[in-house]
Amino acid sequence: MRGALFLICAAALTAGCTEPSESVRIVGSSTVYPFSRTVAERTAAKFHQRSPIVEMTGTGGGIQQFCRGAGEIDIANASRPIKDSEIALCQANGVEAIGFRIGYDGIVVAAAPSNPVKALTRAHIYRALAKDLPRQGGFEPNPNRLWSDVDPALPAVEIEVHGPPPTSGTRDAFVELALEPGARAIPELAALEESDPAQFKARAGALREDGRWIDEGENDNAIIQLIRSSPTPIGVFGYSYFDQNRGVVAGVAIDGERASIDTIADGRYPLARSLYFYVDARRARPALANYVLEFMSEAALGPAGYLTEKGVVPLPAADLDAERKKALAFHERASALQVEPRP
């Protein structure tokens, strides 16, 4: 096959047919994608190398490709930690995954400034969005139509929430950070978690299908466009999108905390999650190590770093230091494995 490829190369009459494996290849989460491509671009400019190729495949799909170890994938971006089943897949295929924690991303519940819903608790969110709610020992379909049905203190506005689909890492995190704690606030469900954790997870993750929760595809901009001009709908999306659209949409306080760099970093804002990327150590080489090092650098993740500007909430200093040490170790390993090519 190689031979055929080179023939085609020659036929294309082009100079410098490069080995395709030269550029760093990155797949994975659409949440990490905007940050990843920024680092890719900066790495290329700083180290005078080809820019890494970043694909947006979603966390699950990206890790699958990465762990199968076939497609020359160097890095999988993830908006959740790698699962045990995925680690097993990686090991079965000989992929040595080294994980790096980048920082935090908040999940923002937001609405148009004209929307009277300004503050919610996670219990409110669960009661408004759950498919079934417990009643008299059993479960019945969620009867709440207005936010004031959930809690009389809330305004009498129709419940209409637009958010990410089940394939999205943002949805997984929303279920885990908002809905499960919200479900725990209901005694019957808390008891269910004691007796049957799997059943609890299924109940907590099941959102209503009567048009009050609406799956919006993996496009956070579409959600913002939907909610910005009407006082009823509420949107659920990533913090970086919120950051870029301040003034157009207003954040809803969750458990009394508004999403901001400060409240996410010190853990007060409840809907925050860590972002990660996983590197295949077998593929260590200077171009890849440069990218990893650049990602963890002060220029990227420092207080005035370019990723911080793009909406990543940096880790606490000690944790960031630990990640940086890992990046440096990886860089040394890459330089030891391979002699730097002459420029």
């Binding site: 085609i8 294309a12 082009t14 491509r37 080809r50 820019s51 190729i53």
Partner: peptide, 17 residues
């Protein structure tokens, strides 16, 4: 086939990403 990707450098031939 992986062409929905961030590519900063224009390709020089049909084999490059």
């Amino acid at each position: 086939i992986g062409m929905v990707a961030f590519v900063a450098t224009p390709p020089l031939n049909p084999l490059e990403p």
